[in-house]
Design a protein around this nucleic acid. Structure first.
Lengths: 388, 388
DNA sequence: GTTACTTTTGAAGGTCTCCATAATTAGTAA
DNA sequence: TTACTAATTATGGAGACCTTCAAAAGTAAC
C-alpha cells in the first residue's frame, strides 16, 4: 500500500511548493527565478513568493547576478548547503575515520587516525572522541552545528545504537555507540554495520550509482555484505540481514583458510597480512597462488551466488580490503558466480577504497535528514538542528 | 531518496483532499460527513465540497441515514467499491482458478476448473479462456468491466507478461500470457510467478498480515519462494528473485528425492502422490517415515536458512501443497532453521490453502490500480477503466 | 400534541495561495 | 542617446480552505 498523503489546508500547498523549490535547487548551482519557475512548474509570481519565504527562513541565499547577459540582470538564489552539517564516523580495526559534510554531501574535512588493532574498548572510544573533536575543529564547527551523525562499526547493531555482537572485537559487544558519540554532537546519532554503509556509499558516489538492487561484498579479513533493495538499505526485521556467512554450506567461514595456509610469505608474517602475499604471487603467475585464489573465489562465490539467486540484483560490487587485488580475484569470482546463477548480474569492483564506510555514514546521515527535514508529510521548517 | 511531490496549484490540493476522503472511506462502512471530517482533518464545509465532487464523479454513493439517533439525521456516504472490478487467475498444474473481486477486494465469484496435468499449451489456454468467461458471467460482468487482471503461473515471467522459462511445463515456455488473457478483458494484464502471489496473499489476508518482511516457502511438488521486503513484493532486477533453489548446496534440488524413495505406498502410486503417504505414515508414528520427513525438512531448511540469514524476515510462512501436513513438517523444519540462523523469525503455516495464488493475483491487481488510480501524483479521476 | 434538546445542514464572510496579464525597471547593444 | 531585452513589480481574479451562525430535521420529555 502506498503511503497516503494527509491532505490539508492551503498552507500545505505552500509547503509542497517550497519543497519543490528546495528539491530543484539542492545540489545545483544558483538559479534565477525564471529558471526555478520553469523547473518547478510554478508561475513566476508564486515562485518569487516561495523563494522569498525560504530566504527569510534561511534555506536560500541570494548570490551575485551573472554579468554580461542581455536584459535586466536576474537575481540568483542558491540552496544554503552550509545551513547544517552531518558527520560520518568509521570505527575500523586499524583506523578511525571521521568526515564532516554539508547538506549537499560536500565533504568539508576528513580526519584519519590510526589505532592499534589490539586497542581495548576505552582506548578505541577515546580515539573516536579525539578524531571527532579534531574533525569538528578542522571543519570549523562545534558539536551543536551537527544535525545528524552516523557511526559505522563491524558487528550487529540494534535499533537503539548498541553493538549487540561483535565477533572481530569481543570487547566491543555491548558498547552503546549512539549514546557515547551523542555526548559530542547534537542531532540524531545513528549506528550501522560497516558493510551496509559501504554498500550505501557505492550507490551514492561509487560504481552502483544508478542501480536499485545491489549486492555489496565486503571481501577482506572478514567477509560481509550490504544489500540495497529498491534503492534503500535493507536491514531486516531485527537489523540482522546479510548474515549469510553464518551458513557453513556457503563457504564463507572456510574461505579465509585457503589464504591462511599460504607458505610463500616471509617467516613470521602476521597471518592477517598473508592475503597480500598470496594475491601478489598470483599476480606474478605463481600457479600455486593462482590455485589458492581460485579456491578462495569459489567459496566467496558460493555465498554471493546465494544472494544473487535470492535477490536478483542488477549489480554485485566487490569491496573491502581484497578488492585492491581485484585484478586477480574478480575473474575467478565472476566465473564461479556465472556457473551457479540463473541470471548473471554485472560484477564490478568498488572504486571508493577505504573511504567507503565513512562516506556511507555521511550518506545515511543525509538520508535521515532528508526524511525528517524535507519530507512531503512535514514540509520544510526553518533550518535548525532537529531534535533527537 | 523519498519520492518528491511536484507541488502545484489549488486543484492539486483538492486532489489530495479527495484522495484523503477516498482513503478514509475505502474498505469501511458508510460514514457521515462529520465522521469524514474528523478522520480526514478537513473542516466540515470542505469535506462536504469534496464529497459532493466525488459523488458526481461516481466514486461515492449516498446510503440511507441511520435511524434512531439524536439530532438531525446525517447523510451517509460509502465508497462505490463496485465501480470497477479486478480478476485474479491461477494457472496451476491440476487446476485453473479465476476470482472476480470489487475494488475493496471483496471476492464476488470464484471458478475452479480441473485440468489434466498432461494438458498441452492449447488445451490449458483454452481452459483458462473458459474459466475466465464463466467467472465473468457468474459475477455479472463483461470483459470491459474489468480494470486490471493478474495471472499467476509457475516459472519465470518477464516484464511484458511472457513466460520465459517453465521447468515444470516445458511447453509453457514462451507463452505470452498477458497478450492471451488481454483478448478477454479490459485494463492492464499482469503476469506473475505463483509463489510470489501466494506470498502476497499471506500479507493481505493470511498469517503475515502485519509483517513487513516475509519469506514465503512454497513446499510441494515444486519448491519455490516469494519474498516480501518492506511490505512489497520483491521481484529483483530481471524478475528472477527467489530462485535460490538453483544452488545445489542448498538442498532444494535433492529435497524431493527423500520423499520419492518411500516404499510404503501401494504399488503403482503416482510418484507425485507419494508425499501424501509419507506424511500420513509419519503422522501415524512410522519411524522410517519420520526419518524421511526429517531429511526432507533438513534440505528445505537449508535454502530457507539462506533466505532468513540474508533477509532477516519477521516471519517465515510455510505454504504450498505440503503445508497441509504442517503438523508433521513444521517442527522439524523449525528445529533445522533454528540450528542455522542468527536471529530466529516466527515460522508459521499458511491458512489460505489452495486459494492463495488466486487471492494474491487479486491483490496484485488491486495494488496496480492503487498506484494508478489513487496515487498522490495523479489524484483521483472519475471512475473509468484505466488504459493499458 | 407541544416543547425542549441535539445534531446536521446550509449560507455568509474572510483568508490564503495560486495564476495571468500588464506596466515598470535595469541592464546591453547600436 | 536610443532601441532592445529580460527581469521585476503591481493588479485583478479564481479556487479552496476556514470559522461562524442561523435554519432544519429529527428524538426525548412533558
Amino acid at each position: 500500500m502506498t503511503e497516503q498523503l494527509a491532505g490539508g489546508d492551503l498552507s500545505r500547498l505552500r509547503q509542497l511548493n517550497a519543497l519543490a523549490v528546495v528539491h530543484v535547487l539542492r545540489g545545483r548551482e544558483a538559479l534565477t527565478l525564471t529558471e526555478l519557475s520553469r523547473d518547478t512548474g510554478l508561475s513566476r509570481p508564486s515562485t518569487e513568493d516561495v523563494v522569498q519565504q525560504l530566504q527569510e527562513q534561511g534555506w536560500l541565499e541570494e548570490v551575485q547576478p551573472a554579468p554580461g547577459v542581455m536584459g535586466r540582470p536576474a537575481r540568483r538564489y542558491r540552496f544554503r548547503a552550509d545551513a547544517g552539517h552531518v558527520l560520518g564516523v568509521d570505527i575500523g580495526g586499524h583506523t578511525i575515520r571521521v568526515m564532516a559534510a554539508d547538506l549537499d554531501g560536500q565533504v568539508k574535512h576528513t580526519v584519519r587516525t590510526p589505532v592499534a588493532i589490539t586497542a581495548g574498548r576505552a582506548d578505541r572510544l577515546g580515539a573516536v572522541d579525539a578524531a571527532v573533536g579534531e574533525c569538528l575543529a578542522g571543519a570549523g564547527l562545534s558539536g551543536a552545528d551537527v544535525w545528524a551523525t552516523t557511526v559505522g562499526t563491524s558487528g550487529l547493531v540494534d535499533a537503539s545504537g548498541r553493538v549487540v555482537l561483535s565477533v572481530a572485537f569481543p570487547e566491543w559487544t555491548g558498547v552503546h555507540l549512539a549514546q557515547h558519540v551523542g555526548r559530542l554532537v547534537g542531532g540524531t546519532v545513528l549506528v550501522e554495520n560497516d558493510s551496509r554503509l559501504a554498500a550505501l556509499a557505492e550507490t551514492w558516489r561509487g560504481v552502483a550509482r544508478y542501480a536499485q538492487h545491489v549486492v555489496y561484498l565486503l571481501a577482506g579479513l572478514r567477509t560481509g555484505t550490504g544489500l540495497i533493495i529498491d534503492g534503500r538499505l535493507h536491514r531486516g526485521f531485527a537489523q540482522a540481514a546479510g548474515e549469510i556467512g553464518a551458513l557453513p554450506e556457503l563457504g564463507w567461514i572456510r574461505a579465509q583458510e585457503h589464504l591462511r595456509g599460504w607458505t610463500g610469505a616471509p617467516a613470521g608474517t602476521d597471518p592477517d597480512d598473508l592475503a597480500g602475499y598470496v594475491f601478489a604471487a598470483a599476480r606474478d603467475g605463481d600457479r600455486r597462488a593462482v590455485a589458492v585464489v581460485r579456491r578462495y573465489a569459489r567459496d566467496l562465490a558460493l555465498g554471493a551466488s546465494a544472494l544473487v539467486l535470492a535477490l536478483d540484483p542488477q549489480l554485485v560490487v566487490l569491496g573491502g580490503g581484497f578488492s585492491r587485488s581485484a585484478d586477480v580475484l574478480l575473474e575467478p569470482l565472476r566465473r564461479e558466480i556465472e556457473k551457479r546463477c540463473v541470471r548473471i548480474p554485472e560484477i564490478v569492483t568498488s572504486t571508493l577504497g577505504d573511504e567507503s564506510v565513512a562516506l556511507g555514514a555521511v550518506k545515511l546521515s543525509l538520508e535521515h535528514l532528508q526524511e525528517h527535514l524535507f519530507d512531503a508529510r512535514t514540509g520544510v521548517a526553518a533550518p535548525v538542528r532537529p531534535g533527537r
